[in-house]
Design a protein around this nucleic acid. Structure first.
Length: 636
DNA sequence: CTAGGGTTAG
């Protein structure tokens, strides 16, 4: 090759037609050879080429070049910030911004959207709020791109309150602003707000596009509002003559009809999608899930097997389809198959598997999954769902210590009401009422609001630990302090709590004064308390009431007959048994699982077929004898 | 602004 010396100009024009990283590296080498690598007109396009070539090593290379520039200009700063915002290390974007603030350069409207995106990718609302302050300080709140990035930031974190505030206070709004907030409302579970916003959008004559309709339909799916869904369908049909080529929209339509239970309509839209050659995996997944929810697991499985393409989402849907119908073993089997096929399960799939383990009590399997996926690059441990699923799994499998360990190691910004609910109910089931209350008090200092589930867990914890006064105080505080009106479940917990503690009259009184008609759960709780404390008169009342709300339920008869036998009312017990025979009621046998050394053992009431059934029974007898000896009262 | 699949109680 001839020793050709290229001028600055020709190198620069070469760079514009450069395609591969290798070519750009060659040009860079030339600039060094020619001693012109400090020419800003050459180095700037080189840096941005490397920055935007979507390769971690090239980005590293551009960072090196960038660091050698003494006073980078705004353009270069923005280029580097943008490149880092979608890199594997978005925090570099914020460091760059910091050094920019220390330099004579000021940010502009191009800087903030990428900073905000970095905060989103760092899962840090806190940093995002700081950047928001800088937006205000620098006067960019009226730039529509900045506004849309702010909207996205708040929506991603489910903070629709702040998102609405940004939206309301912004002098500029475009289609993207509306779409972002509409979608944010839907994802936060406020689908009705999204419908209202859509109305406003139309009044302001902002023309919706495909994304608007997809978001709205997704809202109709979650509301199971097929009426609105149909209207959106019509509107989308009229507005978009290109409806036929939008796969996303077709999928959203199918999902809406499937979730609303209009399976025939869902399949009709799906078929039209197939005819026009669209990508239909998502639509099939929706239809499949609908069948699973209806309890038709076999139909769901057939669809799953017949789908010509399956992705992680379809696998997850099938795994959950099994879980929904109580087929936890099949769910886990499918998860293992997914792993064996070399497909990388994502957080949602892992969460689904952990949940199946929790339901089965499959500790070894569950902890294997937990350890395998904690600390992966897509960061399960940054995902609130993964953490609560793991906490729940350990708690349900009897390892409250492991559950607490995970909980305590979780940093505060990842602690949510949901996670507290998981750990508190875990503590409740382990009879650790005091700890449950301690953690509950912690929520306040983190600014987390308890919800109705928190109180179910708390009251349950008090009930299992005999903390009657604490339970009463908490029940009081629900409405007076937290503005949550107690539901049937909460009254149920209170009846159980008072009943176990022997305050039978107080429990009965609560039932009579509560604002709803007591359901079977409540009467059963009272009946069970009567059994423990041997109150026959109240037991008769409770069982009479139970009969009126729950006609012909086998468990009631069995419980009643056992109870009467226990308190030496053998004649009455016999008459109840007779009633069972007369009505022909059969209580479905109780069953349970236990997992040891990776094998699952199923136990059913009255079933002695397990090879170690005799030994197990002896062990159980021993356990209950020891429980009795330390004063524990075993209820029905 | 890019569907479809998820975690807590009873």
């Amino acid at each position: 090759m001839t020793n050709l010396v290229l001028s600055n100009q020709s190198l620069k024009s070469l760079l514009t037609s450069c395609i591969t990283i290798k070519q750009a590296l060659q040009i860079h080498a030339q600039t060094v050879v020619n001693g012109i690598h400090h020419d800003p007109f050459l180095i700037t396009p080189l840096i941005s080429f490397f920055a935007f070539s979507n390769s971690p090593s090239a980005l590293h290379h551009s960072s090196l070049l960038f660091s050698q520039i003494t006073t980078p200009d705004l353009f270069l700063y923005n280029a580097m910030i943008k490149a880092h915002s979608h890199s594997h290390a978005p925090h570099h974007a914020l460091s760059l911004y910091k050094s920019m603030l220390a330099s004579p350069t000021y940010p502009d409207s191009f800087t903030f959207p990428y900073l905000l995106k970095s905060c989103v990718r760092l899962f840090s609302l806190k940093l995002g709020i700081q950047v928001h302050c800088h937006v205000v300080k620098n006067g960019f709140e009226s730039d529509v791109f900045v506004v849309n990035s702010l909207l996205n930031l708040y929506c991603v974190f489910g903070d629709t309150g702040n998102a609405s505030k940004v939206f309301d206070e912004s002098p500029v709004r475009d289609l993207v602003s509306y779409n972002t907030l509409i979608n944010g409302f839907v994802e936060a579970g406020f689908a009705s707000c999204s419908m209202r916003l859509f109305g406003e959008m139309r009044r302001f004559c902002v023309q919706p596009d495909g994304y608007t309709f997809v978001a709205l339909l997704s809202g109709c799916s979650s509301l199971e509002d097929c009426e609105t869904g149909k209207k959106v369908h019509c509107l989308a049909y009229k507005k978009l003559d290109s409806l036929g080529c939008n796969a996303l929209l077709m999928n959203a339509l199918v999902d809406m009809y499937a979730k609303c239970g209009y399976l025939e309509m869902a399949k009709r839209v799906l078929m039209s999608g197939i005819r026009s050659g669209k990508s239909v995996i998502a639509a099939w997944t929706s239809v499949m899930s609908a069948y699973a929810r209806l309890g038709e697991v076999d139909v769901a499985r057939r669809i799953f097997d017949q789908m010509e393409e399956r992705d992680v989402v379809s696998w997850t849907a099938m795994i959950n389809g099994y879980s929904c119908s109580g087929h936890f073993e099949e769910a886990l089997e499918l998860f293992v198959k997914l792993e064996d096929l070399g497909m990388e399960p994502d957080v949602v799939a892992v969460v689904a598997a952990l949940s199946a383990c929790a339901r089965l009590g499959a500790l070894e399997f569950g902890s294997r999954i937990h350890h395998k996926y904690a600390g992966k690059n897509w960061s399960c441990d940054q995902n609130g769902g993964f953490i609560s699923a793991a906490v729940d799994m350990y708690a349900k499998c009897g390892c409250i210590d492991s559950a607490l360990d995970i909980f305590c190691k979780t940093s505060d910004h990842l602690k949510t009401t949901f996670l507290y609910n998981s750990i508190i109910s875990g503590l409740a089931h382990h009879g650790l009422g005091e700890s449950a209350i301690t953690l509950f008090k912690e929520m306040d200092t983190l600014g987390l609001r308890p919800d109705e589930i928190t109180f179910v867990a708390l009251l349950c914890a008090c009930g299992h630990s005999g903390l009657v006064d604490d339970g009463k105080k908490l029940f009081e505080s629900m409405l007076t302090v937290y503005g949550i009106s107690p539901q049937m479940e909460h009254y149920g917990c209170m009846v159980d709590l008072l009943g176990r503690a022997g305050c039978l009259d107080e429990a009965y009184c609560l039932i009579l004064t509560m604002p709803f008609k007591a359901n079977a759960v409540i009467w059963r709780a009272l009946l069970s308390a009567c059994k423990i404390h041997g109150d026959i008169d109240l037991a008769k009342i409770a069982s009479k009431e139970l009969l009126t709300v729950e006609h012909g339920h086998g468990a009631r008869y069995v419980m009643m007959s056992n109870m009467l036998a226990d308190i030496d009312q053998h004649d009455e017990a016999a008459s109840v048994r007779e009633a069972i025979d007369n009505v022909g009621i059969r209580k479905p046998p109780g069953w349970s699982y236990v997992e040891t050394n990776g094998a699952l053992h199923k136990f059913m009431a009255g079933d002695n077929s397990h090879p170690e059934a005799k030994a197990t029974e002896m062990m159980l007898w021993d356990v209950s004898r020891r429980l009795k000896s330390i004063g524990h009262v075993i209820s029905a």
